[in-house]
Design a protein around this nucleic acid. Structure first.
Length: 550
RNA sequence: GGCCCCUUGGUCAAGCGGUCAAGACAUCGCCCUUUCACGGCGGUAACACGAGUUCGAUUCUCGUAGGGGUCACCA
């Protein structure tokens, strides 16, 4: 077989050579040890938490080493093309603050290894395709979809391994005349790799996360170019990561099974393969107690979900880091205010197994993150969120910025800041009572007390509330009022002999709280009342007193 | 089915041949406290199973089981 002739037949318009491309896309000039990594998602319409896990790993690895991180869009699947997906992708990654040094952007490309969209790189792939054909390492296959299905069925029947290999590889060794004839008839074809591997052979390979991995050689003649001339993931991966001079590939471990093929491909092309970090899958609890993999359709795994819920980006980051690097939490405790970039991230600390996504933990992390923010920061992020997801609430929040800020300031700062909410979408429930439109009685008063007494106390307090009072005076007033109705003002005494009292000042505070906020749980009452103002406080106290005895 | 990866409490996870097997989240109890929170202290709770190597295995090896992945002109 004259492979050279075949390659001209298949790729007549390709004139460039692999050598030309080496010159066009030269090696990077980086310091020793600098890692070049990338995020290479396919634009499916939404970004997955897994993408962020992978992206964050790449980002830390490259930037921490003084290297480069770039974004490459893997849009080689025309059938699954989703309109606007690339924009969504770039926007989402931007929201999550991943800083790319080069790669695909909204309006094009940034960087000398462009284009960074695979759909625009066909001519580059074809150079290598032609080269492989001319060397006898790849060949055209004219099998129809139906023929392939029949092959699969036959293999199933024979209990043979699946795939296009060995005797099943119909077009692997057809004479050139036949190929020319098919070509002449304009029949569609794909380019297949001529594998020389055997499943009898094992190869050892070191993954940066999994460690020593023993895999079986690939013997399948995988498709390199689809019939539309666009490469498959495998071929594009080898060509692009070589030309873009990627040193480290971070990806999910679902790729582990095709790794032998990738290694084979790099060798066939004369490329040095990158180092690989295969991350275990992120799983989720499914139903009862069974664990299941994170599927593309789990809405809570889509990044847009976290944005809509109102998780601060920083919280999602912190959570992912705690999952990725087990020592991150310890570090965070030791450095509560340091920027995450100061944490020494290491792939050595990464768990080779997959992990279950822990929503409760994320919430906890988020509460901590929010509790450390200033009121101004909370205002900024909460209003940003509300503007997009709850316009009415947004208007309330921004109507009087100073007032809103003072609400956010309650219990903030100091060593033990409050941790009331984990996401912005909970904010309305937490502080809604500050706005008349959202104020309503949510909770019931304690059953132990006579409602008439409660009403009496509440009404009486309405007459005594003086916003000018200092906090201790304010509280003394409440204590005195309670004592009048035999509610203990000294908690220790009350606890020692509860039977001597109708209740404690804690209960009295509870009555007032419920009247003013509509809830049994709220931030500091003194602050709440002073922000609401005398008029509003008195009004709510009185209407509550009336309401409760109806 | 073939091939591959994984397996410490409910969850995330330390642990690299000798530990009373960390810590965090969740949960429960107590304390602090004017409420609500925060916080503090403490409790329940784990090395999947079976062989082997070894004086000694959670740590090493091999099986078994379980979980997961992959076998496309998807990535």
């Amino acid at each position: 077989m004259d492979y050279k002739y075949l390659s001209e037949l298949l790729f007549p318009s390709v004139t460039k050579t692999a050598e030309d491309l080496e010159v066009e896309f030269p090696a990077r000039n980086l310091k020793e040890g600098a890692i070049v990594s990338r995020m290479a998602p396919s634009p499916t319409g939404f970004v997955h938490l897994g993408n962020l896990v992978q992206g964050l790993t790449s980002e830390r690895l490259s930037h921490q080493s003084g290297g480069v991180l770039f974004l490459r869009v893997e849009d080689t699947d025309r059938k699954r093309e989703v309109k606007g997906a690339v924009e969504t992708l770039i926007e989402t990654l931007k929201h999550y603050g991943i800083q790319f040094d080069e790669g695909a952007t909204m309006d094009g490309d940034n960087g000398i290894y462009a284009p960074y969209r695979q759909s625009q790189r066909a001519s580059i792939y074809h150079v290598y395709a032609k080269k492989l054909v001319s060397e006898g390492q790849a060949y055209p296959c004219f099998c129809t979809e139906q023929e392939l299905e029949e092959m699969h069925a036959a293999q199933e029947k024979e209990c043979a391994n699946f795939g296009y290999f060995g005797k099943w590889a119909k077009w692997r060794d057809r004479p050139i005349e036949e190929i020319e004839q098919m070509l002449g008839e304009g029949k569609p074809w794909v380019l297949r790799f001529r594998s020389t591997g055997s499943i009898e052979n094992k190869i050892k390979f070191t993954d940066l996360i999994k460690g020593e991995v023993e895999v079986t050689e690939n013997d399948i003649d995988h498709v390199l170019l689809k019939s539309d001339g666009i490469p498959t993931y495998h071929f594009a991966h080898a060509v692009d990561d070589h030309l873009m001079r990627t040193t480290h590939v971070v990806r999910g471990d679902e790729w582990l099974s095709t790794l032998p093929f990738h290694l084979q491909l790099f060798r066939a092309l004369g490329f040095k393969p990158p180092k690989y970090c295969h991350i275990g899958p992120l799983m989720k609890m499914d139903g009862t107690s069974k664990r299941k993999l994170s599927k593309r359709k789990d809405p809570e795994l889509a990044l847009t979900y976290y944005k809509a819920e109102g998780f601060p980006v920083e919280a999602v980051y912190e959570y992912i880091l705690t999952v990725l690097n087990s020592n991150f939490e310890d570090w965070r405790r030791a450095n509560p205010n340091a920027h995450t970039d100061e944490f020494k991230f290491s792939y050595k600390k990464m768990n080779p197994a997959g992990s279950l996504f822990d929503a409760a933990k994320l919430r906890d992390v988020s509460k901590n993150v929010i509790s450390k923010m200033t009121a101004e920061k909370v205002y900024e992020l909460a209003t940003e969120w509300a503007k997009e997801f709850d316009v009415d609430f947004y208007e309330k929040l921004t109507a009087d910025m100073q007032r809103t800020l003072s609400i956010f300031a309650i219990g903030r700062g100091g060593n033990k800041p409050r941790k009331d909410y984990a996401v912005w979408s909970e904010l309305k429930e937490y502080m809604g009572f500050f706005f008349d439109d959202y104020f309503k009685l949510c909770d019931q008063p304690d059953e132990r007390f006579d409602r008439a007494v409660i009403a009496k106390i509440v009404r009486e307090y309405a007459d005594m509330y003086n916003p000018e009072d200092e906090q201790n005076v304010w509280f003394d007033t409440i204590k005195a009022l309670g004592e009048k109705y035999n509610f203990a003002s000294n908690m220790k005494e009350y606890k020692a002999n509860p039977e001597n009292y109708a209740g404690s000042v804690a209960d009295v505070s509870g009555f007032l709280r419920l009247a003013v906020t509509g809830k049994n749980s709220s931030p500091d009452m003194y602050a709440v009342m002073s922000i609401l103002g005398k008029e509003k406080v008195v009004e709510r106290l009185n209407s509550y007193a009336a309401e409760i005895v109806k």
